[in-house]
Amino acid sequence: MAYETKSIKDILDNINRGEIYLPAIQRKYVWNDDQITRLLDSIMLGYPIGTFLFWKVKKAIINDKEYSMYEFIKDYHDRDMNKNPPAPQPFPNPGDETMWAILDGQQRLTSLYIALQGSMSRKLPRKRWNNDDAFPKKELYFDLSSEKIDDDYITYNFKFLTNEEVKKNKDNGIWYKVKDILKYSTEDLTKVILDSDFATNEVAIYNFSLLHTRLVRDDIINYFEVVDDSIDSVLDIFVRVNSGGTVLSKTDLLFSTIVSHWNDARDKIDDLLSKNGTYFDIGIGSDN
């Protein structure tokens, strides 16, 4: 089967409809905010963001084999939501429904889901973990007036900001909440621009239109499907694909093999490695 393509909006809609999940062989989400904003910058520049590999399988097979699946994190929180919630087990009334489990690209796809559908709550330095105020909720904003900033590697200025930070920065850019643009069709854009506070700013109009093109219209997600009912075959593909980037350690391989056959292994091992609130990261999996 040849590679296929989708728009970012379409792939996010697939996740929201419960059509894409994470298999237990994948590690936790580990990207930082700089990696996310660089990904968005690359998308705006039209750079390739790598291919994705999906395992296509019937939900009934997942139920029958009792394979563990996890949902995507939407509203990331350093303390309260840093692990993927389990998917329904079993899937109710699966019929002939198929689903995708992502084998390569989960860090990129999770980053896009958080940035374009959810929020980010990182712990502030020098704040206690039991202090709820230490985790301000931030959403991804784009400075529509940005052309080139100081960093030679960045062209478009994306930042995770709180509502208060947006208000404070209103005189230092035209900050637009990125997820809002997914609501509009191409036909809506002219009216949205005319009704906006940047209607006379040519740079902002260009950036707004380009943002819509990249996220809604362009088929940026380049993916390949693996169709197989056997977790062992899928595990072999997972190891081969991930070893092509960052070589998997013996710990990585052992973890992936265990969780592919032990239903609750991912959560049990994670709990075992957590001691007195300290998490010992053994670095499972990779994402190119």
Rank of each mutant, 00 (worst) to 15 (best):
A115L: 09
L272F: 15
K148H: 12
F142S: 02
T200R: 03
I114S: 01
F52I: 03
N288L: 15
L39Q: 03
D281M: 02
D13G: 09
T213P: 00
Y29R: 04
R108H: 12
Y67P: 06
D34V: 09
P125N: 07
F158Y: 12
M69Y: 15
S7A: 09
V227S: 10
A199L: 02
T257H: 13
R17E: 15
F238Q: 01
K170H: 07
I237L: 14
K59F: 02
I269Y: 07
D267S: 12
L39Y: 05
V247K: 15
L12W: 11
A199K: 15
D197I: 01
I154K: 11
F255Q: 00
N84W: 11
K183F: 05
I220R: 09
V227D: 10
L116V: 05
D34M: 08
L254F: 14
G173V: 02
M69T: 15
L182E: 04
F52M: 10
G105F: 05
N157R: 08
L235W: 05
N263L: 14
R122M: 09
N242A: 05
D197W: 00
K183W: 00
L39E: 02
R217P: 00
V57G: 08
I25W: 01
F72T: 07
T110M: 08
S230I: 01
A199M: 02
K127H: 14
F142Q: 02
L22C: 10
Y176D: 02
K168N: 12
E147W: 01
I221F: 05
S286V: 13
W55P: 04
T51G: 11
I284N: 08
K137M: 13
P94G: 07
D228R: 04
D271M: 05
L22G: 05
K65N: 10
K191M: 02
F224N: 09
T51D: 08
D281K: 07
G105T: 07
V30C: 08
D271E: 14
L235Q: 04
Q107E: 13
K191S: 12
G244F: 11
L161K: 12
S121Q: 13
Y76H: 06
V178G: 01
N163S: 11
